[in-house]
Design a protein around this nucleic acid. Structure first.
Lengths: 191, 191
DNA sequence: ATTATCTATAGATCTATAGATAATGC
DNA sequence: ATTATCTATAGATCTATAGATAATGC
């Protein structure tokens, strides 16, 4: 557990690191990881680039902290997820284009060779698919109304969420992400 | 029509440009656009970086040529598409991880601010959605069996294709992209 | 005392321009 | 003649290290 009890009494240093991670999320949203310079992140928190490196010794260490942030975000205990909560999640995402842009950009970059986030995303998707399968199983049992097993429906569910995000980020006027996602859930749930 | 009749009698220069574009596709697959240096592309065709710039005066001009390549690829006349041909397309894609990786990386980068491919992808997705809607309309008429209109099903179809590509690129062993896509089409087509 | 931040700087890149030389096409 | 390619190089970045100074915590 990286955080936990320490949460309440955050040291000055932890505070600073959190600020830096927040700034990094923004800069990555704007320029991707490869395009995000340490100097740009540092400037956003009023530091020099070398000052930033006191808190995160390498650029990759900063990326790791950014990815951990996401992990915490998503680490909602399986049991609390239900299909209707997924709709709320998508609706919530539609109000936070910044964070979605950060992680859509990172996901895109991560498929390139030797990208430092590649392993993170590979593992994360394995976990997210398993999670979604268990949500669907809790909702429908061994077969969805359409006849699909939860394990076969899960990658489709994840794909729709990600794919809609790209279309929506590129053209928010033309793509009603939550409505489209609801359509998909209807499709999944109908016989 | 960028090519056309000239195709048959391709000049030495056109030949060279095509080689360079091919190399650029590879390097972008490996490192993304921002990470793809002109020197790396040049080396792959046995040129110096400055030699390459004789054929494409700027890095962005090279990217534009790469994107045009894709356009040609996708510009299959609407009328020839049918739902079952989409399955063949996905199966074909599953045999060409390189090109899929190139454009998945570019799509990811393109959501960042001021990315030179952003407008291209925005327009392309508008066109692709319209295309898919017309494929679905030809197949099912004004309502799919599930009750969705072609216009509402289209973004889901596109999202599934893109989303599955990311999952598959990250973990080809765990994701059977064509099988999953077939599952989705069944979902769309069933009442 | 320890932590945070700064100045200075090394060492790699990267894109792009200028101008010379080599190869090719009429 | 024109096109293709090269050498040389300017001018910007970028990450990271070294070492000095300022701020903070006991």
């Amino acid at each position: 557990m990286p955080y936990g009890d320490a949460m309440a009494t955050r040291t000055r240093s932890e505070e600073r690191r959190a600020e830096i991670v927040r700034a990094a999320l923004e800069v990555i949203a704007e320029r991707g990881y490869r395009g995000a310079s340490l100097a740009a992140v540092a400037e956003r928190v009023g530091l020099t680039q070398q000052g930033l490196l006191h808190h995160f010794p390498t650029k990759e260490a900063l990326l790791v902290a950014v990815l951990k942030e996401r992990d915490q975000w998503d680490a909602v205990p399986d049991t609390t997820w239900r299909a209707d909560l997924l709709v709320s999640l998508v609706e919530y995402n539609a109000m936070r284009p910044g964070i979605i842009q950060t992680f859509s950009a990172l996901l895109g970059e991560s498929v390139t060779e030797g990208h430092p986030a590649r392993e993170f995303f590979t593992k994360r998707y394995t976990a997210v698919r398993a999670n979604m399968a268990s949500v669907l199983r809790a909702e429908y049992g061994e077969r969805l109304p359409s006849g699909l097993t939860p394990e076969r429906a899960a990658p489709l569910l994840v794909a729709v969420m990600d794919g809609l995000q790209y279309q929506w980020l590129l053209d928010p006027e033309s793509v009603d992400m939550p409505a489209a996602f609801r359509d998909f859930l209807t499709l999944l749930g109908e016989r």
